[in-house]
C-alpha cells in the first residue's frame, strides 16, 4: 500500500482529499444546522455554467466555476432577504437557470467534451498541481473563516435576532457563509462530482451527531469522519480500481452504519443497566 504513495497522482489526490475532508465536514456542520442541504445541491448544479464558460474560453474551468458559485451564493442570500419567495423556490430558480446556461454554453462549444464528466462524477486522481494549489489555498481560507467565526455562525443560525442584538453583522456574515459553502461545494465537485458532492457535507455530520455530546466535539468528530472517508475511499478505489467519488461516499455510509449500530447498542446497554 505504501508504494502507492510514490505516485504523483496519489500524492496530489491525498493532499487534496485531506483538505477537502476537513473543509467539507466543517462547513457541513453549519449546512446541517441551518437545514440548507438543498442550497449546496443547487450551487453544485448551477456552477456547471461556470465550468462550461471556462471550457468555452479555454481558461481554468474550476476557477470560473468557483467564481460563478460565489456570485450565485450572494444572489441567493440577497433574494432570500429581499424577494417574497421561499428559500427553496429561490434556490430552485438559480439551480435550473445555472444548469440551463451551462447546457447552452456547452452546445456553443460543440463536439464531445470528455473533461466535463470530471464535473459530473468527479475524478480526484486526475487533478493537476495547479488545481491542488487552488484548493489548498481556498481550503485554508475557509478553515480560518470557520474557526474564527464558528460561535457567531452558530448563534446567527440559531436565532438571527439574538445574533444581531449581540452585535453580529448578520447580512455580512450570512453572505460570507453562503460564499464559503458555495466555494467549498465546487471544490468538492472535483472529487465527488455535481451529483455526489452533497454527500460529504451531510454524511460525516449526521454520523458525528450519533456520538457527539457538544458542538465542539461535533465539529472535531465530523472532520475526523470526513477525512477518514476521503482517505480510505481514495486508497480502496485505487487498490480495487473503482470510481473514487462513489467509493468515498460508500465508505462514509459504512462509517455511518457502524456508528448507528454502536449508538443503538450503547443506548440498549444503558437502558439495561438502569433496569438492573
Amino acid at each position: 500500500m505504501l508504494e502507492m504513495l510514490a505516485y504523483p497522482f496519489m500524492q496530489k489526490a491525498l493532499i487534496t482529499g485531506l483538505f477537502l475532508g476537513v473543509v467539507l465536514s466543517l462547513i457541513g456542520v453549519f449546512v446541517i444546522l441551518r437545514r440548507m442541504a438543498f442550497f449546496s445541491d443547487g450551487i453544485a448544479h448551477a456552477s456547471l455554467s461556470g465550468a462550461a464558460l471556462g471550457y468555452l474560453l479555454n481558461t481554468n474551468p474550476l476557477a470560473v466555476s468557483i467564481l460563478f458559485s460565489a456570485i450565485f451564493a450572494v444572489v441567493i442570500a440577497q433574494l432570500e432577504k429581499r424577494a417574497k419567495l421561499s428559500s427553496d423556490a429561490i434556490i430552485g430558480l438559480i439551480f435550473t437557470s445555472g444548469m440551463a446556461i451551462g447546457i447552452l454554453l456547452l452546445s456553443l462549444g460543440g463536439g464531445y467534451r470528455p473533461e466535463l464528466t470530471t464535473f459530473l462524477f468527479g475524478d480526484i486522481l486526475a487533478i493537476k498541481w495547479s488545481e491542488v494549489g487552488l484548493m489548498v489555498g481556498l481550503g485554508i481560507m475557509n478553515i480560518i473563516f470557520i474557526l474564527l467565526n464558528y460561535k457567531r455562525l452558530a448563534l446567527m443560525i440559531l436565532n438571527e435576532d439574538l445574533a444581531y442584538v449581540n452585535g453580529i453583522k448578520i447580512d455580512l456574515l450570512r453572505n460570507l457563509l453562503y460564499v464559503s459553502i458555495a466555494v467549498t461545494v465546487v471544490m468538492g465537485m472535483k472529487v465527488l462530482g455535481i451529483i455526489l458532492v452533497s454527500a460529504l457535507l451531510i454524511i460525516p455530520i449526521i454520523s458525528a451527531k450519533l456520538i457527539s455530546r457538544s458542538f465542539r466535539s461535533l465539529m472535531v468528530t465530523s472532520v475526523a469522519i470526513g477525512v477518514l472517508s476521503v482517505l480510505c475511499g481514495i486508497f480502496v478505489s485505487v487498490r480495487f480500481d473503482l470510481p473514487t467519488g462513489a467509493t468515498i461516499v460508500l465508505t462514509g455510509m459504512g462509517i455511518f452504519a457502524i456508528l448507528v449500530v454502536y449508538s443503538k447498542s450503547k443506548q440498549r446497554l444503558i437502558a439495561a443497566r438502569r433496569h438492573a
Binding site: I32, L33, R35, K151, R152, A154, L155, L158, N159, D161, L162, V165, N166, K209, S212, R213, S214, F215, R216, S217, L218
Partner: peptide, 23 residues
C-alpha cells in the same frame, strides 16, 4: 433580548455552556 421563538434542530448537540459562550 429574549425572543418569543427559539426554534432549532433539537438533535444538534449544543450544550447550555456553549450556547452562553456564543453570545
Amino acid at each position: 433580548y429574549v425572543p418569543q421563538y427559539f426554534d432549532f434542530d433539537r438533535t444538534m448537540p449544543i450544550t447550555v455552556g456553549e450556547l452562553l459562550s456564543f453570545t
